[in-house]
């Protein structure tokens, strides 16, 4: 079982993983005082834009759970982690080529490190979510419920999915030069194929099941479960279960591809 032996190798070098993650965060936050602001500004502004477009211009208030702004913010924060991970993991082996060439570490570390760094940025951005949650709670516009326990579960599933896809994309991108452009386009399409700005229940049958194959569909469903009422839009348990299965499958596929391509990639970079 390659997956087990590689996980063990990675666990043995976890102090190096932390070193890399801390380096990423240092670089990110030492470059500008506004480092933290940049992390939260993008999802905040995008939430605001979608809110204005759909609620004030299109006059729609049935696209997702109410309050819609909170619904958007949960989705966009998680999406930023996911898309940032994919963009950066696909470059992981190329952009750190010098380090990959000079250190004998389990090569998977370059992928996992990106997902962990982006994940920590995501966790750092959660106070913004808490702020708006508090705001809407005080106004009585939403109530928390027990399904909040699904939130950490969703974070874990998103982490697994991002690692799986990263293991798949990193070696392929190192070998195929224009893959990065393809990934950028696919990510933009995937954004609309993910229930970030709309609720998964609004997708007509049978296409809603197709959407379940996107692991982020279930992740967002699980993340939002604890924040909103479910009388109009019940929780889609199928999406949540499918996302967990798909994420684990992605790690198996990614691990196999990474192992097969490791040799040629090391020769090329």
């Amino acid at each position: 079982m390659r997956l087990i032996s590689r996980t063990e190798a990675l666990a043995a070098r976890r102090s190096v993983l932390w070193t890399l993650v801390i380096r990423d965060l240092r670089v990110r936050y030492s470059q500008s005082v506004l480092g933290y602001v940049w992390t939260i500004l993008d999802p905040l502004l995008m939430s605001l834009i979608y809110f204005l477009v759909f609620v004030y211009i299109f006059k729609r208030n049935d696209l997702g759970h109410e309050p819609y702004f909170l619904f958007l913010l949960i989705g966009l924060l998680a999406w930023q982690w996911f898309s940032g991970s994919l963009t950066d993991t696909s470059r992981a082996l190329i952009s750190e080529a010098k380090l990959v060439r000079s250190t004998n570490l389990p090569r998977e570390i370059w992928v996992v490190r990106v997902v962990v760094s982006k994940g920590i940025e995501y966790v750092f951005s959660l106070p913004v979510l808490l702020f708006f949650l508090g705001f809407y709670l005080l106004q009585g516009k939403t109530h928390l419920n027990g399904w909040l326990v699904l939130f950490p579960f969703a974070v874990v599933v998103e982490f697994i999915a991002a690692v799986g896809l990263g293991l798949l994309l990193a070696p392929v991108t190192a070998l195929i030069t224009d893959m990065q452009r393809v990934i950028r386009i696919v990510l933009r399409m995937l954004f609309y194929a993910t229930p970030v700005i709309y609720s998964g229940q609004l997708v007509p049958q049978p296409y809603d099941k197709v959407l379940w194959l996107n692991p982020m569909t279930g992740v967002l469903e699980a993340m939002r479960a604890g924040f909103f009422e479910h009388d109009k839009l019940p929780i889609q348990w199928g999406a949540i279960a499918t996302s967990a299965v798909v994420s684990v499958a992605l790690v198996f596929i990614g691990n196999t591809v990474f192992g097969r391509l490791e040799r040629p990639v090391l020769k090329e970079i």
């Binding site: 190096v16 070193t19 670089v27 470059q31 010098k98 380090l99 060439r101 000079s102």
Partner: peptide, 23 residues
């Protein structure tokens, strides 16, 4: 090999020593 591979331009030499040795 590739002696300077682990260093990051943005960080101070002090930080870089800790990071590279950590790697």
């Amino acid at each position: 090999i590739e002696l300077t591979g682990g260093f990051v331009g943005e960080l101070t030499a002090r930080d870089n020593i800790y990071l590279t040795a950590g790697l």
